[in-house]
């Protein structure tokens, strides 16, 4: 699944980190990883570690397996990242109850069945 733009991002995630790109010229944060900054149109970026924190923008409860090997029902949440304006990420839900709109959430590194490290989400706080 990783491509030439994203391989470094996946490696960081596998080490338990969470990062987005910071433009080397104008400091704009961006995700997903790619060479050009959409704000200043220059190449070059550094990895910027950020807290995997955000708020629930939306979620769905899947009642059929849309990919092979899945067990339904399963919940996918759409998270608005706190550190990157206008950036959404998706993941599976690790809360005991269904999410609420606007709920503060925190990412949790999890190892999928095939060994790939993913980022799931749970309610923020202890």
């Amino acid at each position: 699944m990783p491509d030439r733009d994203s391989a470094g991002w996946w490696e960081l995630l596998a080490r338990g980190e969470f990062a987005v790109q910071r433009c080397a010229s104008c400091d704009t944060l961006r995700f997903p990883p790619r060479a050009f900054c959409p704000a200043c149109h220059r190449e070059g970026a550094h990895w910027a570690a950020i807290e995997p924190e955000g708020t629930v923008e939306s979620w769905i409860v899947n009642h059929q397996a849309f990919t092979p090997g899945g067990a339904e029902p399963y919940l996918v949440v759409m998270v608005r990242l706190a550190a990157v304006p206008g950036c959404f990420v998706y993941g599976n839900w690790r809360g005991a109850r269904e999410p609420r709109g606007g709920q503060a959430v925190r990412g949790v590194h999890t190892r999928a069945g095939d060994g790939v490290v993913l980022l799931d989400w749970r309610p923020a706080g202890p």
């Binding site: 699944m1 990783p2 491509d3 733009d5 994203s6 997903p32 790619r34 899947n62 397996a65 849309f66 990919t67 899945g70 399963y74 996918v76 990420v89 998706y90 993941g91 599976n92 999928a112 790939v116 993913l118 799931d120």
Partner: peptide, 12 residues
């Protein structure tokens, strides 16, 4: 390229 950040969660 965005699908790689969604498909692992069964979101396709």
């Amino acid at each position: 390229p965005e699908i790689q950040f969604q498909a692992p969660y069964g979101y396709v």
